[in-house]
Amino acid sequence: MVSGDMSQGPRIAVIGQSHVQALRRGMGADGRFAVVDTNGLAPAWVGEDGRVTAAFLARYPRDMACVSMVGGNFHTSFGLVEHERRFDFFCPFSAEAGVEAGREIIPFGLVATCFRRVLEASMFGPMTQLREHFTGAMVHVCSPPMLPPAWHVERHPNLFGGKLANGVAPQGVRQKLYDLHTALVREHCAAIGARFLPPPDEALDAQGRLLERYWADDPSHGNAAYGALVHQQLLEALGL
């Protein structure tokens, strides 16, 4: 699960879950990066107490730079698949201003409170620990705005395949969930002193969504071409 040999001198620890795969595929052989997808680790990188284990952190010299690609998909869990009680919400962080008629409106404050609770437990806690461990620069890579039309999700549903009886949620709703997620992550980065790296502009359409040529063959990830753009972004951000 780990690429890059730290004994040979990688200087940048890339730590995350599924979104690291696009980077891994797109960066080619770049020995400066040590990439780990913690989903494949045994024992798990996070203990039952929700904290990153000392054993995991001990693998990394503290003076390495850290690229966090932790989490980044709660918006997908929450709203990719249409719930039987179709919902919408107003989001102050989104260009999607209105709500769709006929849908149940959840107050923004309630959605944000729910997101904050989940992200603090699953994402922000580990990010904070990484920030405390690494003394070098820390960059958090924003998850891609993978918000394709329903047809793409239906063509490449993966494990969502059996769960689409109610269909795919409207792009506008998914956009707002992504925008909320991104705003909260950006806020946390500022709080812990990590640099927030937004999706590269050249990968986005006029609405800020990922262009089709950067979609993976699944509902929620970028592909290798997207990973190559992020790699380039990281090199610039880290002054390499």
Partner: peptide, 9 residues
Amino acid sequence: ICDEEAIRG
């Protein structure tokens, strides 16, 4: 799915 991503990678 994230696990599958890891395997595929």
